[in-house]
Design a protein around this nucleic acid. Structure first.
Lengths: 307, 307
DNA sequence: CGAAATAATGGATTTTGTCAAATAAATTGG
DNA sequence: CCAATTTATTTGACAAAATCCATTATTTCG
């Protein structure tokens, strides 16, 4: 399948742009006593554990001979020490000395400061979008085996319900053409949740990675035995990470713990991704009914899960 | 304002990731007769026009002497020719010879093929998302002088009111320790606006730059002759751009146009930045009254502007 | 006009990276 | 078990890439 030449060149343009950008960042560290390659080696050793020369050769694509000399220098300076590997007598495990770790920490700090200086120029929203974009690129281009940062599920904090309203309003308008009355409905639900929230029997979960929110869901008390799942949302950029499944699972676990007998939810037939999640979790379609809302002809659905 | 360490490290992680990624791409071109730096010089010349050595030194951050040697080699190989600049006799304009252009084209092709090979592994939607993410990163990180993009004031769209709730909830919790009941109040106001919005006499303005929201304000009808300014918000990182002033001005202009007699607003005494804006716009403090709300002891203020 | 700044280059040197071969320990296949 | 092969690291010799300092030719500025 042919790929559009425009897209190819857009990617190449970004490659050149980012090469320059990283180059500029590295210049800041350039007047130190370590070269760029030495820095990369030290950083890899700093963050990894029990690494051998061979590991570094592979992960940094370095010439073994070159690396050997770099390590020799570090050893002679007292930054590193080596220990014969227990598993393989040919290997040396590389270990930072106390002094080495102390000497190198300032460079980590400097590198962090440089990035921080760039981030402070951006608004909170810009930072979030930047990191989301970076995560998207990494996970798209990374070989599957590479691990990405973990998705964390936490309880809601101030601002989170607003975020839920914001994202529902924006995304459903964009993808399904819903009008403002949908955002108004979500705002009503959100306001109701914030005002009447009973922590004993209700909860809201936020999924995030790197302090960037990826999705959310809430569970409220409908009556003594029934909980209602509401406002499930997953960022388009986070699809495929299992965020939706994790959120639904949290809901069900919480409902069980609180001795609810049933979890119910209302959704619309066009929201395939969400409905798929509900089916997988064991929800059954109870009722369907057409309605005209949010400027669209829709089919509302009620799904129940008996616990 | 401090930037989250998680975010800093997420960015640094991406930098390392992309350094490796580009490094891997470059390896493909490595067994050619050009070095990486030579390649970058040739790309720059290939895509730019009428460049001088100085231009390249700046855009690629190269040592002038080093570049001079690279160019000398290219000239001796017949890839490039130079012409004295008309504007400045010290400068030489660098021009690809026919032969040079012909010789270099295959490398462009090879680089395109390499990128194409990666893109073909992705679905159409993934390609689009990848490129969008790259564009976002480029425009976000482009050198400061290029970020003089204008701040635009526009009317609200779906999702915007949610954003207003989100940012109020998050920032006022962080800076003033307000609890969730504040977010609930904002959500109530927002929901009310969305539900009862009368475009003829009410409005909400969003300030944004590069499609990123920086602030907002709304004006609603209180009675026939009085408009109420509500929910003024400016991103902390956008302070000093005149966003707040622009938003308040819009409000007042709109109120005048709609023949309101008075604009009123309610705020709290601790919100100095906002109050300063109101004073500058001509608002007068009418009434003050202590209250306990949002988990804090506060002093509520009513300000009026007679039009 | 003369002094200072700028664009480009040459000389000398250092730093960085590469290739081939050597050493030493493990693994494999009979 | 042992010879052959493979793997992890090191050394030697060298080449390529990059830098520092000084110089020349122009231009710009006061």
């Amino acid at each position: 399948m042919a790929v559009s030449e425009k897209r190819i060149n857009a990617v190449r343009k970004f490659n050149r742009f980012y090469t320059k950008h990283v180059g500029a960042l590295n210049e800041g560290l350039l007047n130190s006593r370590f070269s760029l390659t030495e820095m990369r080696v030290l950083y890899e050793l700093y963050s990894g554990d029990n690494l051998t020369a061979g590991d570094l050769v592979k992960s940094l694509s370095l010439d073994p001979a070159y690396l050997s000399r770099i390590l020799k220098k570090f050893k002679s300076e007292g930054l590193l020490k080596t220990a014969k590997s227990a598993r393989d007598g040919r290997q040396r495990v590389l270990i930072f000395t106390e002094e080495g770790r102390r000497d190198f920490t300032p460079f980590i700090k400097a590198s962090q400061d440089e990035v921080a200086a760039i981030l402070t120029l951006l608004s909170d929203a810009e930072q979030i979008r930047l990191i989301e974009a970076m995560n998207l690129i990494s996970s798209t281009l990374a070989p599957a085996e590479e691990i990405t940062d973990p998705v964390i599920i936490r309880s809601h904090r101030p601002g989170d319900i607003g975020w839920v309203i914001h994202r529902h309003g924006a995304l459903y308008a964009q993808e399904y053409g819903f009008d403002s009355s949908f955002e108004a409905l979500v705002a009503k639900v959100g306001e109701d949740f914030l005002t009447n929230y009973d922590p004993e029997f209700e909860h809201c979960w936020i999924a995030e990675r790197n302090d960037v929110i990826l999705g959310s869901v809430s569970l409220v008390k409908k009556d003594l035995s029934t909980a209602q799942l509401r406002l499930l949302y997953v960022e388009p950029t986070a699809r495929g990470l299992g965020v939706g499944r994790k959120l639904v699972d949290e809901c069900i676990r919480f409902a069980r713990r609180k001795n609810y007998v049933k979890v119910t939810l209302w959704t619309n037939s066009t929201l395939y991704a969400a409905i798929h999640l509900y089916e997988e979790a064991g929800f059954k379609l109870i009722d369907e009914e057409p309605h005209h809302s949010f400027g669209q002809d829709l089919v509302g659905q009620t799904w129940d899960l008996i616990l």
